[in-house]
């Protein structure tokens, strides 16, 4: 019964090999309903256990913003605070929350779904994509709260606010790319989950969430030049520029270009990087 041609004239393929990229991506696309439903059901399940349920989605970043506002706005007041500091802070914290939660949840997307991965065969890329979709669904009510707060502080809605939609889309694509990269990395190095909170915190403090780079480093042109290319800083600056008015909120058009390029590059890199280890997910050793 030994065989000379184990593939039987090419009708069989080697187990543990990964499918070519194109059919793989088509397969992922055909599971989009799975990606969306998994995200939605997860949100339901997570909130069922809390008494305040969905309210926590908004309460958590609000409490965060309150703490940072207290510490950096009142206790450590400085001249690096721009006008409309409160709105500045809220937009920063909320948009950053979408980024950082996608980053951390995406990293756990494969490792925390071992049972699913081991018992059903589906393209694993659905998992990090679903994790980010989940964060996107949670970001929508946060945007609503953010807008209410901005109106409450005296800025009236502008047609420009519609630019939040493409901005959210760019950020979503960027987050997906990043999540696919971290999802694979944690499969190789579990220790990464321990490091993630520190990485997020580092990005948080260096991104200009509670201070304005333009003011703090107004004489350091190199620093300003560098943060021009920091993607998260670009996203925050764009969000603030779309929503707020004033001399602190003029943004060069190039930011739209840079952030889109970041998103496309990150997504392409994430797709290839994740796909290259497709056969490894679910293995226990």
């Amino acid at each position: 019964m030994t065989t000379t041609d184990p593939t039987r004239g090419g009708t069989l393929t080697k187990v543990g090999g990964r499918p070519p990229l194109r059919p793989y991506l088509q397969d992922v696309w055909s599971r989009r309903e799975f990606v969306y439903s998994l995200a939605r059901f997860r949100i339901e399940a997570e909130n069922q256990r809390n008494r305040l349920g969905m309210a926590w989605v908004v309460l958590r970043p609000l409490l965060n913003a309150a703490i940072y506002g207290l510490i950096f706005g009142i206790l450590l007041g400085s001249n690096s605070r721009p006008d409309h500091f409160l709105e500045f802070l809220i937009i920063g914290v909320f948009v950053f929350e979408f980024f950082s939660s996608s980053f951390t949840q995406g990293a756990k997307a494969v490792t925390s779904n071992q049972a699913l991965v081991q018992s059903l065969s589906f393209p694993r890329m659905s998992l990090p994509l679903s994790a980010v979709t989940q964060r996107l669904l949670l970001f929508v009510p946060m945007i609503a709260v953010m807008l209410v707060i901005i109106v409450a502080f005296g800025t009236w809605p502008q047609p420009e606010w519609l630019l939040l939609i493409p901005l959210t889309a760019i950020l979503f694509v960027f987050n997906c790319g990043l999540a696919m990269i971290t999802a694979r990395l944690t499969v190789h190095f579990r220790d990464l989950t321990q490091l993630l909170p520190f990485i997020t915190r580092l990005i948080f403090y260096t991104t200009g969430i509670f201070f304005s780079f333009d003011r703090r480093f107004s004489t350091h042109h190199t620093v300003l030049r560098i943060v021009d290319f920091q993607p998260v800083h670009e996203f925050l600056t764009l969000a603030r520029a779309v929503l707020l008015k004033g001399p602190d909120y003029n943004v060069p058009m190039s930011y739209w270009l840079y952030s889109s390029l970041w998103a496309i590059a990150m997504f392409a890199l994430g797709v290839v990087f994740f796909w290259r280890a497709e056969e490894r997910y679910g293995r226990t050793h």
Binding site: P6, T7, R8, T11, L12, T13, K14, V15, G16, L38, F41, R42, A45, N113, Q114, A115, L116, Q118, S119, L120, S121, E279, G282, R283, T284, H285
Partner: peptide
Amino acid sequence: GLTPTSQGAIYAASRPAMLGVGAALI
């Protein structure tokens, strides 16, 4: 394909699905 082979190989017509007694899905 959940356990890599150290020698030899397995060829299949489609991706096999496995049902074990393990943990629930979600």
